[in-house]
Amino acid sequence: QWKVGDKCSAIWSEDGCIYPATIASIDFKRETCVVVYTGYGNREEQNLSDLLSPICE
């Protein structure tokens, strides 16, 4: 189960590419979260089910 502060990978809606991110907040009722893309600072809402394991850098 994901928690705030977890590192993950998420698909950015603008280009469909996968980027490393950190979970900033979680809404368990809606099963969504807000991620912050590492190195970019962009925030975006994602479905918890769409999150991927962190990418090894």
Score class of each variant (00 low, 15 high):
C17H: 15
G16D: 04
E14V: 15
G39S: 07
V36A: 02
L51K: 02
G39D: 03
E44H: 05
Y40L: 14
I26T: 01
I18S: 02
L51E: 02
C56L: 15
T32H: 02
Y19M: 05
L51N: 02
A24S: 07
C33A: 15
N42T: 15
P20C: 15
D27M: 08
S9E: 09
R43D: 05
C33R: 00
W12R: 10
D50Y: 10
V35C: 06
I11W: 10
S9N: 09
K29Y: 12
S9R: 15
A21G: 05
C33F: 09
C56K: 10
E45R: 09
D50A: 11
A10E: 04
V35T: 02
N47P: 08
A21P: 05
E44L: 06
W12C: 11
D27S: 05
I26E: 02
P20E: 12
D27H: 04
V35F: 06
D27P: 00
Y37M: 01
E45Y: 05
N42F: 15
Q46C: 04
I11Q: 02
Y40S: 15
D50L: 07
K29A: 13
Y37K: 00
V34R: 03
V4D: 13
G5E: 08
G16R: 04
V34Q: 01
G39V: 10
A21R: 06
P20I: 12
I55A: 10
T22K: 05
N42S: 12
G5Q: 02
K7V: 11
E57R: 08
P54S: 06
V36W: 07
R43E: 11
D15P: 04
V36Y: 04
I11P: 01
I18R: 12
E14D: 05
G5N: 06
E31A: 13
G16N: 06
T38R: 07
S25M: 09
Q46A: 04
L48F: 05
E14P: 04
I23L: 02
W2V: 14
G41A: 06
R30P: 04
V36E: 12
T22Y: 11
C17W: 02
S25C: 07
P54H: 07
E31N: 14
Y19V: 02
E44S: 06
E31R: 14
N42Y: 14
I26Y: 00
A10N: 01
Y37V: 00
E31M: 15
D6T: 00
F28L: 11
E45L: 09
I18H: 01
I55N: 09
L52H: 01
E14Y: 15
P54R: 11
L52N: 02
R43T: 12
G41E: 04
S9I: 08
R43Y: 13
I26R: 01
D6F: 09
D15Q: 07
Y40H: 15
S13W: 09
T38A: 11
K7I: 11
C33Q: 00
P20F: 12
I26C: 03
S13Y: 08
S49D: 06
E31Y: 11
Y19R: 01
L51R: 03
R30I: 10
C8Q: 00
K3H: 13
A10L: 07
C17L: 15
A24K: 04
N42A: 13
N42I: 15
A21S: 02
K29I: 13
E31S: 12
K3A: 12
V36N: 01
L51I: 08
S53M: 13
R43V: 07
F28T: 11
C33M: 05
S53Q: 14
W2G: 14
C56W: 15
Q46P: 05
D15E: 02
I55Y: 12
K7N: 10
V35W: 08
E14N: 08
D6A: 00
S13K: 13
V34I: 14
G5S: 04
A24E: 15
V35Q: 02
Y37F: 15
I18K: 01
P20Y: 12
Q46S: 03
C56D: 15
E45A: 06
Y37C: 03
G16H: 03
A10Q: 04
R43I: 08
G39I: 11
D15H: 04
P54T: 08
L48S: 01
D6M: 10
L52F: 11
G16F: 07
G41T: 06
E57S: 14
I26L: 04
G5V: 03
Q1G: 13
S13N: 04
Y19T: 02
C8D: 00
C56F: 14
Q1I: 03
I23K: 03
V35A: 02
V34S: 03
V36Q: 09
R43S: 14
S49C: 08
E44K: 04
I11H: 01
L52E: 02
K7A: 12
W12P: 00
Y40T: 15
A21K: 03
L52S: 02
Y40K: 12
E31D: 10
I18G: 01
P20K: 06
S9H: 12
L48Q: 04
G39A: 10
I18L: 12
V4Q: 07
E31P: 02
N47M: 07
D27C: 10
N42H: 15
T38M: 11
G16Y: 07
G39Q: 09
D6E: 02
D50E: 08
V34P: 02
L48N: 05
T38L: 11
C8R: 00
S25D: 05
E57G: 13
I26F: 05
L51H: 02
C17E: 13
S9D: 03
Y37E: 00
D6S: 00
E44W: 08
Y40A: 04
S13L: 07
A10M: 07
S25V: 10
S9C: 15
F28V: 09
Q46T: 05
K7R: 12
W12N: 09
A10C: 05
K7Q: 12
I18Y: 14
E45S: 06
Q1D: 13
C56A: 14
V4R: 00
K3M: 12
E31Q: 15
E57K: 06
E57W: 13
G41L: 07
D27A: 03
E14S: 08
V4T: 07
S13A: 08
V36C: 01
Y19F: 06
W2L: 13
T38G: 01
V4M: 00
D15I: 04
D27Q: 03
T32G: 05
Y37T: 00
T22C: 06
G16M: 06
E14F: 15
D15R: 10
T32N: 03
F28P: 11
V34E: 07
K7S: 11
V4L: 00
Q1T: 08
A24H: 13
I11F: 07
A24M: 14
G41Y: 05
E45F: 07
G39L: 12
E44F: 08
V36F: 04
N47W: 13
I26A: 02
T32C: 04
I23Y: 04
I11L: 06
D6V: 06
Y19K: 01
C33K: 00
C33P: 00
S13C: 03
V4N: 07
N47E: 05
S53E: 14
F28I: 11
P54Q: 05
A24W: 13
S13D: 04
T22E: 09
G41I: 05
T38Y: 10
E31V: 07
V35D: 01
V4E: 13
K3R: 11
S13M: 07
S49W: 10
E14T: 09
W12Y: 10
T32A: 01
C17I: 06
K7G: 10
Y19D: 03
C8Y: 00
S53W: 13
I23N: 02
K29N: 13
S13Q: 03
K29R: 12
Y37A: 00
E14C: 11
T32W: 09
W2D: 14
Q1E: 12
Q46G: 05
W2E: 14
E44C: 06
D6Q: 01
A21L: 06
E45H: 06
V35S: 01
G39R: 10
C8V: 15
K3F: 13
S25N: 02
L52W: 04
Y40G: 03
V34W: 11
N47C: 10
G16L: 08
Q1L: 03
I11M: 07
E45N: 03
E45D: 03
S13P: 02
I11S: 02
W12I: 05
T22D: 01
S13E: 03
C56M: 14
P20L: 12
I26K: 00
